[in-house]
C-alpha cells in the first residue's frame, strides 16, 4: 500500500529527517514534517493526510503533547489514522488512544521498533488501513493484569493471544509460529471460548475484542 500521505511530528531533527527518508524509500510521501504539537495540528488541518505519525513528547512542555494532539485530531477528523511513537510505552496512554475512535486506525509503538524497518512500515500501513497496532510491551502489561482467567490458556494459546493483541492477522500469526492457518484458527476459537468472547470472523474485530477484554 504505497503512496500514503504522511504528516510527521518529531522534535529531534536527526530522527525526523531519518524517518522522512525511510518512509519515502517505501514509496510514501511526507507532506509535512514538523517539530511541535501546534505545528502538527495546523499541518494536519491543511494537508489532510492519510496518517499522522507523532512523537509523544514534544515542545513546549515535553510531557504528552503528541498524545493530546492526536486525541484532538481524532475529534475533528475521526477517520484520520494515527501512529504514536514513544521512548516508553504505558497502558495508560494506550487506553486513551484506543478509546479515541473505538481503536480503529490507531497505533502505539516504542521507537525501538523503527529499527526493524520493514515491520515498522507494515505497522504504519496497517494503521492507515484502519487496523490497530499496539506495542508488544503494552500487550505484556495487559496480559499481566488478567492472569487468573488467562491461566486457563495453554502456553501456545497465550502466545497466539499476544500476537492477536498486537494486531496481527491469522496469516501473520501462522507465519510467525510456523504453523498452518487452520491451526491458528483452532487456537483462536479455543481462546475466545475460554475468555467468554463472542467469535469474530474479521481479523480486526477480533483484535478489538481481545484488547477490550484485556483492558477491562
Amino acid at each position: 500500500m504505497p503512496g500514503l500521505r504522511v504528516v510527521l511530528a518529531e522534535d529531534a531533527v536527526l530522527l525526523r529527517e531519518g524517518l522522512v527518508g525511510l518512509l519515502e524509500r517505501f514509496g510514501h510521501k511526507v507532506v509535512a514534517a514538523v517539530g511541535d504539537a501546534e505545528a502538527l495540528l495546523s499541518a494536519a488541518a491543511t494537508h489532510r493526510p492519510d496518517i499522522v505519525v507523532a512523537d509523544v513528547r514534544m515542545p513546549p512542555d515535553y510531557s504528552d503533547e503528541g498524545v493530546r494532539a492526536a486525541l484532538k485530531l481524532r475529534e475533528t477528523q475521526p477517520d484520520l489514522a494515527i501512529l504514536i511513537l514513544s521512548q516508553y510505552v504505558e497502558q495508560t496512554y494506550a487506553a486513551e488512544l484506543l478509546d479515541a475512535g473505538h481503536g480503529s486506525g490507531v497505533g502505539y509503538l516504542l521507537k525501538d521498533r523503527i529499527g526493524d524497518v520493514r515491520e515498522f512500515v507494515d505497522a504504519l500501513e496497517n494503521v492507515a488501513d484502519g487496523r490497530t497496532v499496539i506495542d508488544p510491551d503494552v500487550v505484556r502489561q495487559l496480559l499481566n493484569r488478567h492472569r487468573t482467567p488467562l491461566a486457563r490458556l495453554t502456553p501456545r494459546e497465550h502466545e497466539v493471544l499476544g500476537l492477536i493483541a498486537e494486531g496481527r492477522s491469522n496469516a501473520a500469526i501462522a507465519r510467525r509460529l510456523v504453523v498452518t492457518e487452520a491451526a491458528v484458527s483452532k487456537h483462536i476459537a479455543s481462546i475466545l471460548t475460554k475468555l467468554d468472547l463472542p467469535p469474530a470472523e474479521d481479523d480486526h474485530r477480533r483484535v478489538l475484542a481481545v484488547l477490550a477484554y484485556l483492558r477491562s
Binding site: L15, G18, R25, R57, Q87, K111
Partner: peptide, 18 residues
C-alpha cells in the same frame, strides 16, 4: 537522557535497519 542518549540510540537503530 530522553533528549540525548535515547534519541541518538533510536536514530542509530533506524540507520542500522536501513
Amino acid at each position: 537522557l530522553h533528549d540525548g542518549a535515547q534519541q541518538r540510540l533510536v536514530t542509530l537503530t533506524m540507520r542500522l535497519g536501513l
